[in-house]
Write a protein that binds this DNA or RNA. Sequence first.
DNA 1: GTTTCTGTTTATGGGT
DNA 2: ACCCATAAACAGAAAC
Length: 762
Amino acid sequence: MKTSPRRPLILKRRRLPLPVQNAPGDTSEEEPKGPPAQQEPAQPQASEEVAESNPCKFPAGIKIMNHPTMPNTQVVAVPKNANIQSIITALTAKGKESGSSGPNKFILISCGGAPTRPAGPQPQAQTSNDPKRTEVITETLGPKSASKDVNLPRPPGALPGQRWENCAGGEAAGCTLDNSLTNIQWLGKMTSDGLGSCSIKQEVEEKENRHLEQSQAKDAQAEGPLGASASWPDSVSERPPYSYMAMIQFAINSTERKRMTLKDIYAWIEDHFPYFKHIAKPGWKNSIRHNLSLHDMFVRETSANGKVSFWTIHPSANRYLTLDQVFKPLDPGSPQSPEHLESQQKRPNPELRQNVAIKTELPLGARRKMKPLLPRVSSYLVPIQFPVNQSLVLQPSVKVPLPLAASLMSSELARHSKRVRIAPKVLLADEGVAPLPTAGPVKEEKLLLGEGLAPLLPVQSIKEEEVQPGEEAPRLGRPIKVESPPLEEWPSPCPSVREESSPSWEDSSRCPVPRPKKSYSGPKSPARCVSDLLVIKRRERREMSRSRRKQHLLPPCLDEPELCFSEGPGASGRATAGASQPASQQRGSSHEEGGPFKTPIKEMLPVSSTPSKSALPVTPESWRLTPPAKVGGLDFSPVRTPQGAFGPLPDSLELADLSGTPLKSVPLFDCPRELLDSEPFDITADPFGGCPPSDAEAPRPGSSEPQGAGLAANRSLTEGLVLDTMNDSLSKILLDISFPGLEEDLLGSDDVSWAQFIPELR
DNA sequence: GTTTCTGTTTATGGGT
DNA sequence: ACCCATAAACAGAAAC
């Protein structure tokens, strides 16, 4: 393509009849394998019966109801004092009794307090092995959920037949989802690589993980076609709630060097998301390639010798998201075993979106799970929502501190942001930190910041400004400038740079990468290093057309090292930028790719035009722009955020306080997804220096530090809010809340309304 | 020389 | 209008 002329004609694309395709995939959920409960021939009705019977066995106060929407699933309301263990045991027994026909899945809800669970070993489902599987999902409102979590995770062995899920807080919802979505099972295999990734050699971990996964898979299969089928299939059958972009990021970020070959990416995805290995059509690889080529954030680097091509994530765009992060518990030390993590992590319920972020219940830091970022939530939605959790969640939202809110909002913002993004960022000014206050935040900001919080988020605000969709007008004023310096933003995540860059990108094509061409060393990238690699990137010519592509080769990075490392993200960015230069537009200047890259590509051409365009905020790249990051971005990134970094602010405290503040409930969830997908924000947003931490090595987490304390604070703050929502303090607060209120918000979203249940239960 | 892999683009459709 | 997913055509390079 160099020239489009060549472009193949694309004949028509026929859309295969969905039905057909879907069948395999879609059905997967329901497929035979799938959801045991549902699948089971079970008769819904049977469940009812069971429910009735249950009471007898269970301690007083426990109510069991059939799940409105889920077949073979019953909702068990557990009193605070109730002994969960015993309940579980009873349920398990029941499940067995009922046999395939009966309900095999139970959702435990503890309304008031934390259920008491003996910490000890749960008998867990000992029952387990029943051919039919019983799932128990526990949800607790109370703080203790944590404990549950611990317990719940059932030992592998137990599972086959039964599935216990804990949903702590936010996730609870997810749990509910299980059926539909499936839990995370698909993740099941996932290991906590991510965690490791942060600090450790992920590669190793990956391998380990793979083994684990494999072993698990085997186990599952081994277990029995039937039984196993139930559990295993489910997991496998369901498609992960992540976009390809997100998965690619997870894969790449799972490595130390933050780079990965195409094959490795395929392998990683298959390993972590069995769906792709077993169920997805072969075309998924095409999609992966397509995404790599399409998104500017993905930069292709070639080894020095040019023989090997690695894909990296542009530092500025890289949020360093890892699978673990998505779900990862904050505290390292957490007692939870990987398994636990898995269990929790696993369920990404798209639906719950909200939940995710907040899980109040968890004990101290124990886990925060993020919600998976779902690309398409809707599609994944689950039927049920748990009021409880949600409620909890929601509430916070209500009161949530602005910052948080902002973050939350991000999702929406994101969307807006897109537009916004345009704003190129005034930032340019860059200041990295500098504040440009000026521009006012747009509406969104107002919302978020509006309140007193604003102060907190200085940086963000700034960004927002830029971002703001608000408009351009304001932006324009500045923005324009931005363009001028088009730097490569990429490289520099730094604020200052960033901004500029952004413009450049966009203009140019938005491709982050593009710049790279220039200098940007691709290198810095994540890996940092890439020292040896040549990077290739493509640029998009988007300008021209709209294509979104990127293309450019990156020059070798040799230099990079220096640049990259020099400072860290920020520095690096800049350095590069400087070096690189100016605008991508210029690309010409630089090597332009010229060089040696194999794939020279597209870029060349049009660039020039870019400039002019640049002025226009035309297309924003997704990630870049997104930045809307503004606020949200930052915050969100729960992921990356290294919590640690934030030391400064006590999350809990913050939260507490915040909790006081009202927030909007806004959809936190969305955010997450956005995060992933949109990567961008980070980058852009990064309040901190934007620079992404390059970090790989560096302290990614902490890295941000530099920016102003304020920033840090903000961030920390925000993060805290978002992530930590689960803090105890918060959770406690939440606990007090009664369901009633919840209903609407929460319920509203879902079909099922707890409201209905509750009364009944009571 | 053929096949396969990898990378780029374009097109289309669905969901928001 | 965007995003995302998917399908497909093609080209270059590597593997057979």
